[in-house]
Deep mutational scan, measured.
Amino acid sequence: NQASVVANQLIPINTALTLVMMRSEVVTPVGIPAEDIPRLVGMQVNRAVPLGTTLMPDMVKGYA
């Protein structure tokens, strides 16, 4: 099963992502693939992302 990117903490709206904010986990539904974590660093979320939430492509500005 493919691992997805999951929020390791509450990520406030418009926050630029850092490695410490994300972890990989096998979840359903599948979100952004864990191998894209390096690409996500520095990108901003367009909404608040609660701890444990799977990051979906539409949550990250410029990802989709």
Rank of each mutant, 00 (worst) to 15 (best):
T15E: 05
Y63P: 05
L40S: 01
I37D: 00
R47K: 12
I11A: 02
N14E: 08
R39A: 07
V45Y: 00
M22F: 12
A34D: 14
G42S: 12
V6C: 02
T53K: 11
I37K: 03
V60P: 01
G31K: 03
G42D: 10
I11Q: 01
G62E: 12
I32R: 00
T53Q: 14
Q44L: 07
Q2D: 15
A48P: 07
S4R: 02
G31A: 10
A34K: 05
L10A: 13
A48Y: 13
A7D: 00
L10Q: 09
T15S: 07
G52V: 01
I13G: 04
E35L: 06
N46D: 11
V49K: 01
M21N: 13
P12S: 04
M22V: 12
I11W: 01
V20W: 05
M43Y: 13
L51A: 12
P38C: 15
K61N: 11
V30Q: 11
V49G: 01
I13N: 09
N46R: 06
D58L: 06
M59L: 07
N8F: 15
N14Y: 06
M21V: 07
S24K: 06
S24E: 14
L55C: 03
L10E: 09
N14I: 03
R47N: 08
I37Q: 14
M22G: 00
G52W: 08
R47T: 13
L51H: 09
T18R: 08
D36A: 03
I11P: 00
V26C: 10
L19D: 05
P33H: 12
T28C: 15
E25H: 06
M22C: 11
P33I: 11
M59W: 12
L51E: 13
R47Y: 11
V49T: 07
N14F: 06
Q2I: 09
Q44P: 09
Q44Y: 10
M56Y: 11
S24V: 10
A7C: 03
A16T: 08
E25G: 14
A48E: 15
I13M: 07
A3H: 09
I37V: 11
E35H: 09
G52A: 14
M22Q: 03
N46G: 09
G52I: 01
P38I: 06
V26H: 06
V5W: 01
V5C: 13
G62F: 04
V5S: 08
S24F: 05
G31D: 00
Q2H: 13
A7N: 03
G52E: 12
Q9P: 01
D36F: 04
T54R: 04
M21W: 03
I11E: 00
A3F: 13
A16G: 10
R39S: 03
V41N: 04
L19T: 12
V20Q: 14
E25V: 02
A16V: 05
D58W: 06
N8T: 13
M21L: 15
I13D: 04
P12W: 05
P50C: 04
A64E: 13
L40A: 02
D58T: 10
M22A: 02
G31Q: 06
A16F: 13
P33F: 14
M59Y: 13
T28Q: 08
P12A: 10
R47Q: 15
T15Q: 05
Q44I: 11
L19F: 14
M59A: 12
I11R: 00
T28D: 15
M56C: 15
A48W: 02
G42L: 02
Y63E: 08
N14D: 13
N46H: 12
G31T: 04
E25W: 02
I32L: 07
L55T: 01
V41Q: 14
A3K: 03
L10D: 12
V60R: 01
Q44V: 07
M59N: 08
L40R: 00
I37A: 15
V49S: 05
M56K: 09
V26M: 08
L51Y: 09
T54A: 13
V5T: 14
